[in-house]
Computed example of a mutant assay.
Amino acid sequence: MASRAQSEMSEAVAANDEMVTEAVAEPEAASVAPGMAADSAAPSYRCELHGKVRRIEVSYLNPSALVPCEVNYLKEVEAPGQTQALWSAEQEVGYCEQKASDFVAKLKEWGWQCQ
């Protein structure tokens, strides 16, 4: 019975990974907005589910500004050292931060524990 539950959990995690890929397949275009100085600490989240770890991080391509930016997705256990850029913005301040926050909320809906 335990092995069936483990198998079902593995399938659920794999299905979540497929949903992640589908959810980020077509990022929205950023609209024009003025830039401002970047905070010293970019948003970063760590999510766990059944021994798997995901990190979602906002990175600023210019350390002194909030744009351009990227939302990066890392699978620490399955693909250490590999980063997937999910969304990016050239001019819309707050776009990356909002996308990261929305994505973490979706992971929580799927059962991930995020902080």
Results as ranks from 00 to 15, higher is better:
Val32Thr: 09
Pro34Gln: 10
Tyr95Gln: 12
Ser10Phe: 14
Ala2Ser: 15
Leu61Lys: 03
Asn72Gly: 05
Pro68Lys: 00
Ala37Tyr: 10
Cys114Trp: 06
Ala29Thr: 14
Arg54Pro: 03
Ala89Gln: 00
Gln113Met: 15
Ser101Gly: 05
Glu18Met: 14
Ala37Gly: 09
Asp17Gln: 12
Ala65Cys: 08
Ala85Val: 13
Ser88Glu: 13
Cys114Gln: 05
Gln82Phe: 10
Ser10Asp: 12
Ser64Ile: 04
Ala23Ser: 08
Leu74Pro: 00
Pro27Thr: 02
Trp112Gly: 00
Ala42Phe: 00
Thr83Lys: 09
Ala89Asn: 02
Glu90Arg: 07
Ser3Met: 11
Pro80Gln: 03
Pro63Val: 00
Ser59His: 04
Lys108Ala: 14
Ala29Cys: 12
Phe103Ile: 03
Glu48Val: 13
Val24Lys: 03
Ser40Phe: 05
Pro43Ile: 00
Gln6Cys: 13
Glu90Pro: 06
Tyr73Val: 02
Gln82Arg: 11
Ala33Ser: 13
Pro80Ala: 01
Trp87Cys: 02
Tyr95Leu: 09
Asn62Tyr: 05
Arg46Ile: 02
Ala29Asn: 11
Ser101Ala: 15
Ala5Val: 11
Gly94Ala: 01
Glu92Leu: 04
Glu18Tyr: 08
Lys106Cys: 11
Asn16Asp: 12
Asn16Tyr: 03
Ser59Asp: 03
Met9Thr: 10
Ala5Pro: 04
Ala85Glu: 07
Val77Arg: 00
Ala14Tyr: 10
Glu70Arg: 09
Ser44Ile: 02
Ala41Arg: 03
Leu66Ser: 09
Glu109His: 07
Leu86His: 01
Ala2Trp: 15
Val13Cys: 11
Leu86Asn: 01
Glu26Tyr: 14
Gly35Val: 15
Cys69Val: 08
Gly111Leu: 15
Ala15Asp: 13
Gly94Ile: 01
Cys96Pro: 06
Met19Cys: 14
Ala33Gly: 12
Ala37Lys: 12
Ser10His: 08
Glu78Arg: 07
Glu90Trp: 02
